[in-house]
Design a protein around this nucleic acid. Structure first.
Lengths: 232, 232
DNA sequence: CACGATGCTGAACAAGCGTTTAACATACTG
DNA sequence: CAGTATGTTAAACGCTTGTTCAGCATCGTG
């Protein structure tokens, strides 16, 4: 056993990249030092720079590696979705489900996706744009096949469905403590999918009993963060 | 004019806290230096430490300040929601709507909430837990009033509705470029609320035309991230 | 007026950071 | 076998970081 992380027979380069992926995902780029990455990978700090040029070069390599994996997951999901639609299976297949199915349980990739979308990183914007386009196209296909109701604002509807899916990954930890199941495990995923499917098929709310329609709307509220705040 | 930021007549202490709030929200705690905060607030770096003890003390002060504002927004939303429910107004009132209504347009608070929820910060976990409890109680109330359909897993349903709402704030920038409207402005919010309300009232998908019910389910897929990866 | 708080600063410090450099193995190549 | 890439390291460098310190105004209070 070398130390710290048992990577099997990985190249040192790949080992560094994987260690960096995990640490970046857990704590963010800036909070992780080159020395920590090197220790986690069982190599010297100088080797990190030798292989990736600089810490930022390593960041870029990790980014492309992760984005590649993400797009493979999403592509798989896309096919799966169309197949399910055609065979009359479940109504929806979620990004979260694809992540849970295709990634090993302890994978740092969900957390890395969170960091990628959180920082206003152009790579995160690019991946979101691609996924939005795919969702939009899928929604159109479902409408023409009669599997989804047509909308007067399909862009917003597609974005709504996509971000609802992504929220499961972004807020994974909070959801887990709230409902008592990690939503990226089969058990949690099942509970989540049941409720989501129900809402997407029938809705969640009912129109109120029957009363005067326009009542208290647009009453102005005092802003909570006025231009000048009380000094603490 | 002093410099950089015109804060009106703020205490230096409050000015530092506000500058830190904005910088932390934009770039994250670790990527911001004490010197940058001091410059943005128009004071010397030493004064930052003098008022808050340390950079981490400043972080804590900013945290409590922000969390206080968040909870005020959410409490307002809660009241508003109940009121709307009773008067038979709109079916839903979203967290995003409350943020948009109660915060000035350029406020750093949405971005700070994003950082708080996505960095596994215990403060973020606490605020999510509180909001989840409130959502759960609101959902129960709506069910007894006949405004929401009863669910066999109300915890998950409440979490689903809450994280869908939060996703608008978390992915604000990506949504803005995807749909062409910032979802925290009145225009974008209106488009978003229309689609969300439609889905929550009637659903988004239709049951497939009518076909064999169980078809291709649980077919095993090759994991995309095998234990040992190809060295790049 | 004296005087202790209070607010605030410039200069400096130790520590930690990313990175560089020179050197050492190891292994393929002619 | 010499020679040259390749992988790897220990040690050090320069810079930035958070923080400290001594001192300067300002000001309400006895």
């Amino acid at each position: 056993m070398s130390s710290v992380v048992d990577d099997g027979d990985l190249t040192a380069r790949a080992g560094i990249r994987n260690a960096a992926l995990r640490l970046f995902a857990e704590r963010g780029h800036d909070a992780v030092t080159v020395r920590e990455i090197a220790t986690a990978a069982g190599v010297s700090p100088a080797l990190v720079v030798h292989h990736f040029g600089s810490k930022d070069g390593l960041r870029a390599a990790v980014d492309t590696h992760a984005i590649d994996a993400f797009d493979r997951v999403f592509a798989e999901l896309d096919d799966h979705d169309v197949a399910e639609m055609l065979t009359g299976g479940e109504a929806t297949t979620s990004v979260a489900e694809a992540f849970s199915r295709m990634l090993p349980p302890g994978s740092p990739l969900p957390a890395y996706l969170r960091r990628l979308l959180l920082t206003n990183d152009p790579a995160g914007a690019a991946i979101f744009g691609r996924w939005f386009g795919a969702t939009r196209r899928l929604l159109d296909a479902m409408v023409t096949l009669g599997a989804a109701r047509p909308s007067d604002d399909p862009d917003v509807l597609a974005a709504f469905l996509l971000v609802n899916d992504l929220a499961v990954i972004l807020l994974r930890n909070q959801i887990a403590t709230a409902i008592g199941d990690d939503p990226l495990t089969p058990a949690g995923l099942d509970r989540w999918a049941k409720q989501a499917t129900a809402v997407y098929l029938e809705g969640a709310f009912a129109a109120p009993p029957a009363q005067p329609p326009e009542a208290a709307l647009n009453k102005p509220n005092a802003p909570i963060e006025p231009p000048e705040e009380a000094p603490s």
